[in-house]
Design a protein around this nucleic acid. Structure first.
Lengths: 344, 344
DNA sequence: CTGAAAGCGCTTACAG
DNA sequence: CTGAAAGCGCTTACAG
């Protein structure tokens, strides 16, 4: 016997053809049965499933992607991992997507348009089945990439101010309303000079700012001098520094609405350090209800945002878009909750 | 003319063959030139690069993975995203891997062996080029999967206690030494009854515990009653609760070594709430130097761990393993740094 | 409802 | 140093 000239490239991997052989059908039928395509004889589906389980068959994602021009990846784009908010969003989305059989590709944009575009481009190379992206504001290049790719996409966190025929799929809550609601709580508590302290200045912070502005204007208490905006990243240290600045303002401020809890926590610690009584001399409120806000001294009044629910609902919506299932509304408002504690 | 019977499946995508045609060489030569394989005429490489740039060619990762049995994915396994420690580790690793042209697949194990195994299995389906995994302790099934897969792997955070021929690739620092060093600092400050408060009880926490034990034994001050271990997840609230418990211990404790900064921060807040003077009545120390520890009142003494450096160095090591470059030592010790502040 | 053929876009294994 | 052929493991597009 001469040596076999067969070219050996096969890994020991179980393939579709192996399943087909055992089930006694063609490979295409196996493919269809396993993907749950209708129009396959239920009896054959049964045989295919049996053979597949018996052999421990698992489809090769690369082969599938190459043939179908669509992978089982879902790209997720978030601004930061250092804000617990986005970690909660991400974990919930990832859990839901995994359950649906998708692999997540995570891109951290650092609030940078160029990085966002670059990350999207890299994700698109993998022909993702879907995209989950934070926010509604993206530059033209990014929007063009998304549109060209034809990949289903759900936006998280923000909701458009008005709905029309072109409304993108989005799951979130109304940041402006939340900002206004928190401000009204402070007003109801008798505060008159309420400052807004914002960092990062991303679109969601700006929407909270608008909400705050609206609420003050309703009462004729708006003063541009009460806007303290710093483009630096949000942190405890920055919150402390902003608190000290605002404390020196004249006429005196009697409440501060920080755009994120870490700033507010930093302010609370600074107040402790300086011996400023909170809420007597100064009321302090935050946003997001992050870890530790209920442990501070005094405990922090804030807005609880439903980021885990948003991540889950956005992923669920995306999966049903990918599967081409009947879609309900493109816009899901998950609301928010004011959490009043001792700092106001 | 009869209609063309050509089957239309092509996307408008630029392929290797397009580049080959323009460059006037065979597709295989393009493939080799672009992958930087040596043994291609430099003049041809030049032509290929030109043609490739001109057409804006980008290789299809799925086709590449299918043909070569290796994707450009790198799997990363970390326990949690809710501990800032792992976020820093992840971000640094991901940045380095992206620069090397790899896509990361992130799996969050929640300190659960079954989840870890499941996530690894899913990642392995994608035939990753490499693996980055947290810690050295994994169950038999996980170890078997890693070994079978033959995928290069680097372990992060931990270092094995002894080195032998089978030492896995790892980048981290000696947790035991760090635990002992921090304890010795407390001893040097005159503390005699030093409690260890641990949560989560993962392998790294246990190593810190051993270090603490060693240091106390050196001074004949070890007492098993000083070990406060709680398997629950680490949090500010838990730190506060543990502080209150330990405070009531008799004979009284004069210092507490918390296994993670969030516990210590919670303890500091509880002390403030209860009016317990820190460090006079009780010294408090943490571990990791997380965000906010330098903002607390008093500021927190802790151990600064080089997680960003670990992520970067581990990724760099992995990339060179993937590329088959000459390897230096399989073990990289990045050390740690004691940060003495006002709480001790 | 089912299948034979072709193709997705690369790389491997040979050969020269 | 270079290439023609085959193959990776699936799915698409036709046809019946």
């Amino acid at each position: 016997m001469r040596p076999t000239l067969q070219r050996q490239r096969s890994t020991g991997r179980v393939t579709l053809s192996d399943v087909a052989r055992i089930a006694g059908v063609s490979p295409i039928t196996v493919s269809r049965a396993l993907r749950g395509e209708r129009s396959v004889d239920p009896a054959l589906v049964e045989r295919v499933n049996l053979a597949s389980a018996q052999l421990g068959y698992v489809p090769d994602p690369a082969a599938r992607a190459l043939a179908s021009h669509r992978s089982n990846h879902v790209g997720i784009l978030i601004p930061l991992l250092s804000n617990a908010l986005f970690v909660d969003l991400l974990e919930a989305a990832q859990r839901t997507l995994r359950a649906g059989g998708f692999q997540t590709l995570i891109g951290v944009t650092h609030y940078d348009d160029a990085q966002e575009q670059q990350l999207l481009q890299e994700q698109l190379l993998h022909r993702p089945a879907g995209l989950l992206i934070t926010g509604l504001d993206h530059n033209a290049a990014t929007r063009a990439l998304m549109a060209q790719s034809q990949v289903p996409c759900v936006h998280m966190m923000d909701l458009p101010s008005r709905t029309d025929a072109n409304t993108p799929y989005c799951v979130g809550f109304r940041q402006t309303d939340a900002g206004a609601a928190l401000t009204r709580l402070l007003l109801a508590g008798g505060r008159r000079r309420i400052a807004f302290a914002g960092a990062q200045l991303d679109p969601r912070v700006m929407q909270r700012l608008y909400g705050w502005r609206l609420a003050l204007q309703e009462h004729g208490l708006y003063d541009p001098g009460l806007e303290w905006l710093n483009p630096a990243a949000s942190s405890l240290a920055l919150g402390g520094a902003m608190f000290e600045q605002i404390l020196r303002q004249d006429p005196p401020v009697d409440a501060i609405f920080f755009c994120n809890d870490d700033l507010a926590q930093g302010a609370l610690l600074a107040a402790l350090r300086l011996g400023i009584p909170v809420p007597q001399r100064m009321a302090i409120a935050g946003f997001n209800d992050l870890t530790g806000s209920d442990q501070m001294l005094p405990t922090l009044t804030t807005v609880r945002t439903p980021r885990a629910k948003i991540g889950e609902a956005a992923a669920t919506m995306l999966v049903s878009l990918i599967r081409g299932e009947a879609q309900t509304l493109p816009l899901v408002d998950l609301g928010f909750e004011i959490v009043q504690r001792d700092s106001t």
